[in-house]
């Protein structure tokens, strides 16, 4: 073991942060690139299901809030892309990996948002689950990723509240609104729980990621935290969690759920969700239709910036 590797191991052991110019094992670098770019793609693809309702938001307030939220997601994608770039992959490569499907993004965004109540459910459940995960990642061992998480968590604190506010409005609104809210909860509950990934026993990347402190808490652990927080929030709304097997275990102090439909999860992960194709096509179209704009910006910069450098 050379002095660089020793230094790396020491950083991990002492709970310090690995920085871009430090030596790191190639697999540590690749694991971080995979996870961070997947995280970034999720932010960016996640703009679409919410963008689906932006133009139809029912009030000036909700429209501005939703636009500011989607804008944050673009910003968070950018923070994360630039974090990944410190590990030696370019934005262009990440974009290509997204388009040729070698990079993934969170499967939750492959579900359609069919009613306005879904803007509530997405904020409350999807952002809620993401926040649980991201709070944990504030302690991840790669410095730039940890710092980005701190910033993202701070900015996203309004996202979940925005979603819950919509749920309140609808759950306590007209019968039609309440029905819409329940329907949204029914559709997003289980997919949101599966956002945390496979059970610990079935998780492929778990061991090494935990040892390197890239991942700080296990999937099941984080999922349980989310469930325990969310069930009482649903009760307040007077909505029913769509799981007949859900019960509170007095001994453990935790809620227990029925087994999830992992077949559906893997089917969506493998490209057969309701909107996988649409999300990717949308992203490609915006990118390809606007190639001429980027070429113009590049040509203009070549003509005007050269004199200065």
């Amino acid at each position: 073991m050379d002095k660089f590797e020793q230094a790396f191991n020491q950083i991990i052991e002492d709970d310090l942060k690995v920085e871009p110019r430090d030596w790191m094992p190639e697999k540590y670098r690749q694991t971080n690139i995979r996870q961070i770019s997947q995280h970034a793609h999720s932010e960016i693809i996640g703009m679409q299901p919410e963008g689906n309702w932006l133009l139809r938001a029912p009030s000036l307030r909700s429209k501005q809030v939703l636009l500011a939220k989607i804008q944050d997601e673009a910003g968070h994608g950018l923070y994360l892309y630039s974090v990944a770039e410190t590990l030696g992959i370019s934005r262009q490569e990440m974009n290509e990996q997204l388009h040729n499907q070698t990079a993934k993004y969170s499967s939750i965004f492959n579900y359609p948002t069919v009613t306005w109540a879904d803007m509530g459910a997405v904020g409350w459940l999807v952002d809620g689950a993401a926040i649980v995960n991201q709070v944990s990642l504030q302690r991840t061992s790669y410095g730039p990723y940890a710092r980005a998480m701190v910033r993202i968590c701070k900015e996203e604190s309004f996202h979940q509240r925005q979603g819950y506010e919509i749920m309140c409005q609808m759950a306590f609104g007209t019968a039609a609104q309440k029905e819409m809210a329940q329907d949204a909860l029914n559709r997003f509950w289980e997919p949101a729980l599966m956002m945390f990934g496979p059970h610990d026993a079935d998780s492929v990347h778990k061991g090494q990621s935990m040892a390197w402190k890239i991942k700080r808490e296990s999937n099941d652990h984080l999922r349980q935290r989310f469930i325990d927080r969310t069930v009482p929030q649903a009760e307040y709304l007077g909505l029913t969690i769509p799981d007949k097997g859900l019960k509170f275990n007095e001994e453990t102090g935790h809620y227990e759920t029925s087994p999830f439909n992992w077949d559906e999860f893997w089917n969506v992960v493998n490209g057969n969700g309701p909107c996988n194709q649409e999300r990717l096509d949308h992203h490609k179209k915006a990118h390809n239709d606007n190639r001429w704009v980027r070429e113009a910006a590049e040509a203009y910069a070549e003509k005007t910036e050269a004199q200065v450098a």
């Binding site: 703009m47 429209k63 989607i70 950018l78």
Partner: peptide
């Protein structure tokens, strides 16, 4: 707002959203 998630690149997406937010706020 129609440009949200449809802009030539992400940085510009954010810029256009900002203009849109200013305009919605102004209208309100």
């Amino acid at each position: 707002a129609e440009l949200c998630s449809n802009a030539p690149f992400l940085e510009e997406d954010i810029a256009i959203s900002n203009c849109s937010l200013d305009l919605f706020g102004r209208a309100e």
